[in-house]
Design a protein around this nucleic acid. Sequence first.
DNA 1: AGAATCCTGGACCGCCGGGTCCAGTCGGAG
DNA 2: CTCCGACTGGACCCGGCGGTCCAGGATTCT
Lengths: 197, 197
Amino acid sequence: MPQGLTSKGAATRDRIIEGAAVLMRQSGAGVSLDEIREATRTSKSQLFHYFPQGREQLLLAVARHEADQILADQQPHLDDLTSWRSWHAWRNTVVARYRRQGRHCPLSVLLGQLAPDDEGARTVTVDLLERWQAKLAAGVRHMQDHDLMTRGIDAERAAEALLVSVEGGALILISTGSVSPLETSLDLTLDQLRVRP
Amino acid sequence: MPQGLTSKGAATRDRIIEGAAVLMRQSGAGVSLDEIREATRTSKSQLFHYFPQGREQLLLAVARHEADQILADQQPHLDDLTSWRSWHAWRNTVVARYRRQGRHCPLSVLLGQLAPDDEGARTVTVDLLERWQAKLAAGVRHMQDHDLMTRGIDAERAAEALLVSVEGGALILISTGSVSPLETSLDLTLDQLRVRP
DNA sequence: AGAATCCTGGACCGCCGGGTCCAGTCGGAG
DNA sequence: CTCCGACTGGACCCGGCGGTCCAGGATTCT
C-alpha cells in the first residue's frame, strides 16, 4: 500500500475490499482477480496499485475485514456479558448470525484460498480467536465475581469451551446445514457455568 | 472409473489415492495432477484412466479415503463405548490423533480444494458426521441403559455436542496449534454426561 | 496363437489467471 | 496556471495446470 493516499484513493481501496468480500460471500469458492475487478468496476492496475503484493495481500485485507465483522456482529452483547440476560442475548445473536449465514462462511472460504501455513493468514485467525476469547473470559470473570456463574471452572477454560462450541457448531452448520448442534452445544456449555444449587 | 478392472489396475488406482493422500498430508495446500503423477510414479493417462472425470473425482476419492481413516483411527474404542474406561480411552485416542496431526488436517485441506457447494464433497462430510454421530449416540445410549450416564440429556443431542467439541477443538488446534481447547471442551462435555450424585 | 481389452508413457493443447507496463487523466498544492 | 504525484484503463505477457490423444506394451480369455 502506497504511503500517499488521498481520500479518493482510500475510498477506492475500501470499495475493492468490500466488493471482494461481497463476491466471496455469495460465490463461495475461489474468486479471480478479474472477477473482483469486474465486480468493483476497477482495473487490473488499480488492484495492484492498492495491493502491490498482489492477490495474497488483497485476500488478507478482505480476511481481516471479515474477521472484524464477526466480532462486530456480536455487539453490543459481547462487550457487556454482565448478566444472564445479556449472555442469552449474545447466545441468540450468535445463533441468528450463523443461521442467517447458512452454509457459506466467508472467513473459512477466504482462509482456504490462502496457504494454510501462511504467516499472515494464521495471524488473522489467531488474532480473532484471541480477541474473542478475551471478551468471553472477561464476561465469565465478571459473572463469577458476582456469584452468577460457578467458580469451579477457570474463566479462560470456560471461554475456550464456549469458543469451541461456537466454532464447532458453525463448522457442522457449514457441512450439514443444521443449526441444532450449535444450539445444543452452546446451551450445554452455558448450562455448565450455572451455579449448582 | 471403468467397469473392467484387473487386480493390477485396482492396485494402481489404490496407489494413486494413497500417494495423493500422503502428498496432501505433508504439502498441505493445493496439489497439482503433475505432482500426484510424479509422487505415484504414474502418467497423466493413468490418472485419467482411473478417474475419467479428472481432478475432482480423484480428490473426492482421496477425501473419502481420509474420512474413513478418521473413523478407523478411533477404533476399537469407537465401536465399544460401553464403559467409562472405554470412553476415556476413546477420548485419549482422539486427542492423541489430533495432537499428532497438528496443524494439518488432511480432510479440511481436501475439501477446501473442492467447491464447497459441490454435491460430492458435501456428501463425504455429511456421511462422515452421520456415521460418527451414530456411533457416539449408540455409546451414550448404552451407558444410559446401564445407568452409567445421565438420562437427562437425549443421546442424539449428547452425540451432537461431543461432535461439536471434537470438531471445534480440532478447528482451533489447526488455527492456533493449541490442543488444550479440544481437551477442555471434550472433558467438560463428558463431565456433563456423568450421573449427578 | 490370437484377439480383445486393459494398462501405460508421454507429447501436446488451450485456457485461465496472476502479474507487468505504459500511456494517459485527475486533482490539489504552490 | 502549472506541475507533480496520485489515480485509472486496458492491452499484453507467460507460466502452470487440467485435460486430450494416440501409439504401444501387458494380460487374460477362448
